[in-house]
Design a protein around this nucleic acid. Sequence first.
DNA 1: TTATCCGTACTATTACATATAGTACAATCA
DNA 2: TGATTGTACTATATGTAATAGTACGGATAA
Lengths: 121, 121
Amino acid sequence: MFELDLRSRAPIYEQLVEKIKELIISKVLKPDEQLPAVRVLAGELTINPNTIQKAYRELEHQGYIYSIPGKGSFIRPAVPEDNTARMQTLENELSRILSEMLYLGMPPRNIITRIKTLLPE
Amino acid sequence: MFELDLRSRAPIYEQLVEKIKELIISKVLKPDEQLPAVRVLAGELTINPNTIQKAYRELEHQGYIYSIPGKGSFIRPAVPEDNTARMQTLENELSRILSEMLYLGMPPRNIITRIKTLLPE
DNA sequence: TTATCCGTACTATTACATATAGTACAATCA
DNA sequence: TGATTGTACTATATGTAATAGTACGGATAA
């Protein structure tokens, strides 16, 4: 279900958080769908259950999943309540990326064109 | 000259790399301009010279500055030669950010409009 | 030449985050 | 009940970050 790069400098739990977020955002994982149990996923990926739990805890804290003891962990249907802070962070990252693309010599028109291919409609 | 967040989870040398890159990209630091000596900057920021050197080494490796023993460290005038790898990384980050903005409910037209305000012309 | 400043390269040490291993407990459900 | 779930906790090993200190060669001005 997930692929990890154990040689990466990025922590395993952080890679897991990003991977799962991508699957939620791209709607591969659907609302209220159950995630693998921490012990199961740990077995599949041959890593420690504590590492999985740390990733799930982080995802729950960020509002992407919810966990119920005795039942399991599930995709949170609704978007996290307060988006403003997260959206501001994204805009800052976006600004930084665009600045660097310009610095590296990519023409503004090409940037716009490239972005439109990444958006619907 | 620089501001650091010692309480941040991000390593000091990494914060330094990002700060200086921003100053280069935004052209606050101009080509061939001399950066503070490792010992001087370490003194100003009250951190260890080794940490500054690690940041400078990374910036040189990424092609943003060049260092000459006995003279100093300077802003590299030209853009790093091979941009393709860096550009690919930026496009991947961009794609991820756009996906998340969409997921959080920002309309595509608003995204385009917002981006155009961040680009020249 | 000498003194000084520059980047650079080491070693050693401390502190912290990551990841693992193991145990335990309460809630859920067949 | 028994099995599975999330959760919490301790302990340990490992790697990275950061510090402290020392040292060397190149560049430059006195």
